[in-house]
Every structure is written in C-alpha cells, then in structure tokens.
Amino acid sequence: MNSHPKIDPSSADVASLGGSGPVGGLKRWLSGAGLLFWLCVVVPTTLAIVYFGVLASDVYISESRFVVRSPKKPSVSGVGMLLETAGFSNGSDEMRAAQGYISSRDALRALDGDGLARRAWGNDSIFILNRFDPFGLDGSFEELFLYYDDKVAVDFDSETGIATMMVRAFTPQDAQVMNRRLLERAEALVNQLNDRSRGDLVRYAEREVMEAQGRARTAALALASFRNRAGVIDPERQASVQLQMISKLQDELIGARMQLLQLSAAASENPQLPLLKVRITGLQRAIEEQMGAVAGSSGSLSATAAQYQRLQVEREFADRQLSAALATLQDARNEARRQRAYVERVALPSRPDDSMEPLRIRGILSTLIAGLVAWGVLSMLLAGVREHKD
C-alpha cells in the first residue's frame, strides 16, 4: 500500500499567495485588505505622490515688511516707543488703509495694468491645476481677483506696527516684481491720503476765513450806512461833547443870572439889564436845544445810540471771528506742513532662491494619514453592519 505524502493546506495557501517572506506577507495583507483599502489609501496616496512629486509647480514667496510713520500720533508699544524717541509713531489708520488697499480690486488693477498678473499666474509652464484659468474658459477679472486673494496676503501686527506682505508666484522674478509694485502702490495711496488730509484741513480753514470776511464786511457796511443815515460818527462820543457844551452853557447861564440879580439890586435902571435878560434867554434856548440833541427826541443821540451799539457789537464780533479764522488758517497751514504720514520699508521685497510651496512631503503624508483614518472608520462601520445582519 502506497503511502502518499500529506499536503499541508497552509503551505498551499502560502504558495498560492506568492510564497513566504515579507513580500508574500505584504501581498496577503493587501489581498485581505480588500477594495476599501485601495480606494481610501492606496489610490489617493499614489495620486498625491504623483501630484506633489512630479506635477505640482514650485511656488516662490516674496516677502516685504513696512510701517507707516506719522509725526502726530502717539505710540503704544516697545517699537512704537523707540520710534517715538525720533519724533515719530505708527500711523495705524494709514496702515489699515494700505492693508485694505492691497487686498482690494484696485490694487489688482494696478498690478495687472500691463498684464503682469495674468502672465505670472496663467502661463503654460505652470501645471494646469495650479495656473489661473487653466482651460481658458473664464478669464474674467472677478475670477482673477479670487485667484489674487489666494496669492497675496498682508498681515498687520498691531503691537509692533509692522505689516508683512507675501506674494506667491511661480518664478522668483515674478514674485519680487509683483511685491515691489504692490508696495509702491500702497505707498502712493498713503501719500494720496496724506495730501488729501492736508488739503482738506487748509481748505476748511480758508472757507472759514472767507465766511468771516464776508460777515465782517457786511457788519462794517451796515455800520457805515447807519452813520451816513443818522449823520453821526459815534453817538456816545458826540453825546459826551454835547454834555460838555451844555455844562458850559449852564455855567454861563448861572453867571448871567447872578449878574442880573446883582445889577437889579444895585441899579434897577442900569441899561445892561435888558442885555443880560436877552443873554439869559439865549442861553436857556441853547441849553434846551443841546439837551434835545442829546435826548428827548426821535433824532437825538440817545435814540440812535442803541442801534449804533448793536451794529458796533456785531462789527466787533465779526472782527473777532475774522481774527480767530485767520489764526486757525495759519495753524492749519503749519499743521499741514508738519503732518506727513509715509511708508517706511523695514524689509525690501525679497527674491526667493528656493520654492517654499507646495509642502510635498507634508502633502503626501497628510494624504496617507487621512486615507488610513478614513479606511479605519469605514472598516469599523462596515464590520458593524455585517455583525448587525448576522
């Protein structure tokens, strides 16, 4: 009876799976892993290796740093205190304006005025998934702005007052040129805002002076017209002169009466008595006329004094307003000459000598880890579903 050698089924399975050893073990593990592992881990990781390792275009980052200095605003930080020792501080308002401008469509229009942005981000040497408008379907300005927003960033440190601008492009030259152009446009914006602020300050003060001059001119004309109409220069001074005349006439009247009284008592037939009586009558009439000119009638000095004083007060007030407006104008001009916010470049736009993006190893490892996590979660879910069915 022939004896046949026994065949170990496990050895047959091993042979059918490709033998033993590390390679055979890997094949068995991949075979047992199933389609889910291939879909979640192998395929995405392979695509990531191909993309990050071969296809993805190198991205170069040009960086520049700048501050906006202003001689009139207080500083708040250590760097600001250092700048304050030189008489300057951080112009945060202008800095925010520059930051907002760089992130705006106007900055993109200035950058792409000669087609620089489209050439730098949309040329055929860039991988199709990285370039702007890869299929030539929608090269609109709005699409370019969305792409621009992803390639240009400005970060502002409120403590140091320093803004950092980073521009991404696919060649070092393009990144540096675009960074420099945006920095120049931001500086031009700060200068424009500064010039407008100075102009508005002086124009407002000049308008106040013109209005004050108009009021002073109107008040002076009104006072002159009243003087011509009333026939007086200064009622108070004229009344003072009139009162002095009345006082003299009253003194003369008293003297004439005393003389008349003395002559009447000494010589009642004296021929000078009628002359003294006539003189006394004349003095009384003159005093009454002078008193009527000072007060008591519609054309008297006392009647015109009230209106004259009102016009005089209006003129003095208008003159004071004019003086104040002229002083304000001079202060505004001095302030305009002193007020000067400007961009100070802390670090010029750099020209990178190596690409910083994409992070190839990190991208591949991230894809692998994400795939493993997805495979593990889905595997547990499917196992739970099978156990529930069983």
Score class of each variant (00 low, 15 high):
G231A: 06
V313N: 13
T85Y: 08
Q290M: 15
H388F: 04
G115E: 09
I254S: 09
D174I: 12
D93M: 14
H388E: 08
I162H: 04
Q312A: 12
A383C: 03
K248F: 04
Q339C: 02
L144G: 02
E316Q: 15
V167Q: 05
A347W: 00
L368D: 05
M245G: 07
A110G: 11
S75K: 01
R207Q: 14
N334H: 13
A306I: 12
A107G: 03
G91L: 02
E288M: 07
G376Y: 10
M258I: 10
C40G: 04
A256L: 06
I7P: 05
V43N: 05
I287H: 09
V373H: 06
Q99Y: 01
P271D: 10
Q259F: 03
S75V: 04
L108Q: 01
S10G: 08
S10R: 11
G18I: 02
R118W: 01
E357D: 06
G100R: 02
F132V: 00
A212P: 00
L368Y: 02
A216G: 06
G384S: 11
L263F: 02
N228Q: 13
K389H: 11
D200E: 14
L311G: 03
L137N: 10
A341G: 10
R386K: 13
P358D: 02
V294S: 12
E142H: 06
R119H: 07
N130C: 03
E316W: 03
N228D: 08
Q312D: 12
I49E: 09
V313G: 08
L189C: 07
K151Q: 14
V343S: 01
F317W: 10
T160P: 00
G376T: 14
S3Q: 13
A293W: 01
L223P: 11
D390G: 11
P271V: 03
T46D: 04
G32I: 02
D13H: 13
D124C: 05
S64A: 15
L326K: 11
G19P: 13
L111V: 05
R360F: 01
